[in-house]
Every structure is written in structure tokens, then in C-alpha cells.
């Protein structure tokens, strides 16, 4: 569960095997006293967060660093694996900790800001939205006359397994696009296949599609598309803080507001080659 600088790994492992309490989510004063904000982000999740050459990198990592800096502390990252649901992730990483040990982080990034998710997880506060993720389709530049997904029926459409994109391709329009779908382990594998010409299009979250295409983005047509049948077209991403740590939650919300106002968030997305979409639920 831990992937961070060496001393942290050593401490976490030590704690895991000796039963000594590990780092747990702290309130603002304890975070300040510690001098470090402990931040959970997903591992192997480009362009948002991944370990590159032993260092955490990516959009969410940059947002986390900016957030910590605003709070006047350093940033430490734990790159976590996704469990079966977001509620599991919030339990494992923010409010309770996984039963295998490892403690909890002070904050977790990339958490959808949705009242229904919040209602199911009252042990955390989900706040400080910083981006809106939407579903996009990247396609070969030669496929010019495409007004909707149906126009891609004859093409192979890549998608990550067990995601909204693969769900949608499997279910929507009476299953019309089911035969066109090619499943990949990740969006980066799907965009790699697009680069290689193995698929005509890739469907997935805009940030992941753009981010994994990187500088090749210009060679393809990348568009968000209306998805008939779906009653939503995207979701806001924010920060989860353990509910009892109200001062930290307030401080994070204030800090994020300031980062938006100063244009820091927008700049981070620009730096990573991802179209910035302001969240709809700005606080």
C-alpha cells in the first residue's frame, strides 16, 4: 500500500510486522507539527499519479504538492491500489485503514465530488473540487465524419476493462457497439494500440486519454461526446479528508480555492498536456 520515499516504506513495513501503530490521518495541528501532509493517490495511473524512476509524479501529485505548500508543510505520497469501489478506497486509505495495516493518509485525491457517494461515506468529507472529468473518444485523424459514437460502429473501439467506457460500449444502444469493443488493461494500453493503428478509436476519461497520448495528441482527433442514455456527462474530482478532522478539511477547502484563484490548478493541467475543465461544484 505504501510507495514513497525510502524511510516511509521502512517505517510502514516495520509497523506492519511489529504491530506498532502506523501513521494515521491527522488533524491540521498534528499535520503542521509533523510538517508533512500524507497524501493518498492511485498508483500506475497516468497522467494523474504514478511512480516514475522511484518518484511519485503526475497531475494529482502536482495538485497535492501545491496543496501541501499552501498549508505550509511538505508532501509525502502513498501510491495506493484501487479496491473494488470508491467506498473501499476511502475506508482503506482515509478513515479506517486496510486490515493488512499501513495506517491512513491525511487526504486522498481524485475522489468524485458527488452527494450520493458522500452520503454512503459519512466517515469522510469530500470537498475541494479541482477538475471535472468527462468521457472522451480519441480517433484516427482519417475518421473525419463522426458525429456520434454510432459512426464508429465499423471501427475497433478500445476501452479499459471494467470502466464506464467499457460498460457503456457493452450496454448502450441495445448493445450495438458491443462487437466493436476491444478491452485493454488500462487506458495507456488502449492509446498505445491507437498509436500503433490497431484500433480506430479509444474511449475513456478525457484526462487519461489525453495524458497517455502525450505529445502524440495532435495526430488524433480527441473529442468529448454525448452519451445517449447516460444521465450524467462527467464527474468532479476533489479531496477526501476524515470527517473528524474538520480543521484540516476547512484548511484544504480554503487552500484549493486559493489555488484556483491564483490559476495554479489550470497551470498544472496545462503543464501536463491535459485540457482543464473547471469543476461544476465550485465551493
Amino acid at each position: 500500500m505504501w510507495q514513497s520515499s525510502t524511510p516511509v516504506i521502512v517505517y510502514a513495513l516495520f509497523a506492519l510486522f511489529t504491530g506498532i501503530p502506523t501513521v494515521t490521518a491527522a488533524n491540521l495541528d498534528a499535520v503542521k507539527a509533523r510538517g508533512v501532509l500524507d497524501i493518498a493517490v492511485y498508483g500506475e495511473f497516468p497522467p494523474y499519479s504514478e511512480n516514475k524512476n522511484g518518484k511519485p509524479q503526475g497531475l494529482d501529485v502536482a495538485v497535492g504538492r501545491a496543496l501541501a505548500e499552501k498549508l505550509g508543510v511538505g508532501a509525502k505520497f502513498r501510491l495506493v491500489r484501487a479496491d473494488e469501489s470508491m467506498s473501499d478506497d476511502l475506508r482503506n486509505n482515509v478513515w479506517k485503514g486496510h486490515y493488512l495495516g499501513g495506517g491512513t493518509a491525511d487526504v486522498m485525491l481524485h475522489v468524485p465530488v458527488d452527494p450520493l457517494l458522500a452520503k454512503d461515506n459519512e466517515q469522510v468529507k469530500i470537498l475541494a473540487p479541482y477538475h471535472r472529468e468527462t468521457i472522451a473518444v480519441a480517433r484516427q485523424a482519417a475518421l473525419t465524419d463522426v458525429k456520434s459514437l454510432v459512426d464508429l460502429e465499423e471501427e475497433k473501439i478500445g476501452a479499459e476493462k471494467l470502466t464506464l467506457a467499457s460498460d457503456y460500449l457493452a450496454v448502450a444502444l441495445g448493445g450495438r457497439l458491443r462487437g466493436s469493443m476491444v478491452l485493454f488493461k488500462s487506458v495507456s494500453e488502449a492509446t498505445e494500440a491507437l498509436r500503433a493503428g490497431a484500433v480506430g478509436a479509444v474511449m475513456g476519461p478525457l484526462g487519461e486519454v489525453e495524458g497517455t497520448l502525450g505529445s502524440d495528441k495532435a495526430a488524433f482527433i480527441v473529442e468529448t461526446m454525448r452519451l445517449p442514455g447516460l444521465r450524467f456527462n462527467g464527474w468532479d474530482l476533489g479531496v477526501a479528508v476524515k470527517s473528524s478532522n474538520t480543521e484540516l478539511a476547512d484548511a484544504v477547502a480554503r487552500a484549493m480555492k486559493a489555488l484556483h484563484a491564483e490559476g495554479v490548478i489550470r497551470r498544472i493541467f496545462q503543464d501536463h498536456g491535459v485540457t482543464y475543465q473547471p469543476p461544476t461544484r465550485m465551493e
Partner: peptide, 13 residues
């Protein structure tokens, strides 16, 4: 559920 979430993303759960 019209929307569930996994790895910070919506899906049809």
C-alpha cells in the same frame, strides 16, 4: 445504480 465509482471514476455499478 446509475452511477457508482471505482478508482476515482464513474461506472455503471
Amino acid at each position: 445504480e446509475p452511477i457508482s465509482y471505482k478508482k476515482g471514476a464513474a461506472y455503471l455499478g
